[in-house]
């Protein structure tokens, strides 16, 4: 990750040949994104859509700098926020005030630390006593509020939004409205990137552009409504494929077991049973072999 001083026109964030892989079981990896080239210009508002939520969120983590890409590079040409809605730097043994103060010391404008801390306390809804207690004694919703409040207290050139829980931007509750107002002030005239999975409404309401990550590749960049449709269709297609595979597998197993009942001594059937490989039926799955469990349970049920 590099911070490069302007002289890059209006580009505030760029990814060059960036790839990220995630560990998935023993010795297996799944790709979040591969060879991604991306330019984000000042003032753009982009929603990132993907079938698997981890693809969009991992991309956002890498663009924010919280994670490093395994290959390629991500360049910042301005102050980029961490993904709003989470905060891994909070320490449970420290009070809300101490955690907030630490963030304020790093990100507040000179001379406005106390003001920012008051704003954070107000948005969190914590009284003075609670605010000075260790985070471990806080209720989870209030801790989430603090994470969101700390994210919104400072100004960034690029605001990234991960999964926000505990705040509905369309709600009319005064606290939600207060957060919405502040959120809109923070993104006014600035760049915004939102991970859409799980919060499509937020993404569609605030973004005028979308991009779709399918199978680790940038499949489309354009209208966010189209992106949403693409993801929906892809999800349905994958579901149908999975259902087909499972049905085919079950019917083969049923046929197997029936054939086994008639001719349990037939060695060819045993060979056939073994030939059903899990990889064939559940590609990419590392779960317990389904065929064996069904056959085993059938065998147990069978009268001796």
């Amino acid at each position: 990750m590099q911070n490069v001083a302007s002289a890059h026109g209006s580009i505030v964030l760029e990814a060059r040949q960036a790839s990220k892989f995630l560990a998935h079981g023993v010795g297996e990896v799944k790709k979040a994104f591969v060879d991604l080239d991306l330019d984000v210009h000042r003032g753009q508002r982009i929603a990132i859509f993907s079938v698997n939520p981890y693809e969009a969120r991992t991309l956002l983590d890498c663009l924010s700098g919280v994670e490093q890409p395994d290959q390629g590079s991500v360049l910042h040409h301005g102050l980029v926020s961490w993904p709003l809605g989470a905060n891994q730097a909070f320490h449970k043994k420290l009070s809300g005030y101490m955690n907030a103060r630490f963030a304020a010391e790093i990100y507040s404008q000179s001379g406005s630390i106390e003001h920012d801390l008051l704003l954070i306390q107000e948005l969190t809804g914590a009284d003075d006593r609670t605010f000075h207690e260790p985070l471990s004694s806080w209720r989870v919703p209030m801790r989430k509020s603090l994470e969101l409040a700390v994210s919104l207290a400072f100004e960034f050139d690029v605001t990234l939004v991960g999964k926000i829980s505990g705040w509905d931007h369309r709600a009319v509750h005064p606290a939600s409205v207060r957060i919405r107002d502040l959120f809109e002030r923070r993104i006014d005239g600035r760049t915004l990137l939102i991970a859409a999975p799980g919060q499509n409404r937020l993404a569609l309401d605030y973004c005028d552009e979308g991009m779709v990550i399918l199978d680790g590749r940038l499949a489309y960049r354009g209208d966010p409504e189209v992106c949403q449709l693409m993801v929906k269709e892809e999800t349905q297609r994958l579901k149908a494929e999975r259902r087909q595979r499972v049905n085919a597998r079950i019917s083969r197993l049923v046929a197997d077991v029936e054939g086994d009942d008639f001719d349990s001594e037939d060695p060819d059937m045993e060979d056939a049973q073994e030939s059903y490989s899990d990889a064939d039926l559940f590609p990419g799955s590392s779960s317990m072999p389904f065929s064996e469990s069904v056959v085993a349970s059938n065998r147990q049920d069978r009268p001796v």
Partner: peptide
């Protein structure tokens, strides 16, 4: 950059 770099996952080498 060395201090930030993640460990390379097996199987992701180019």
């Amino acid at each position: 950059e060395l201090l930030y770099s993640p460990e390379q996952l097996a199987g992701t080498e180019r």
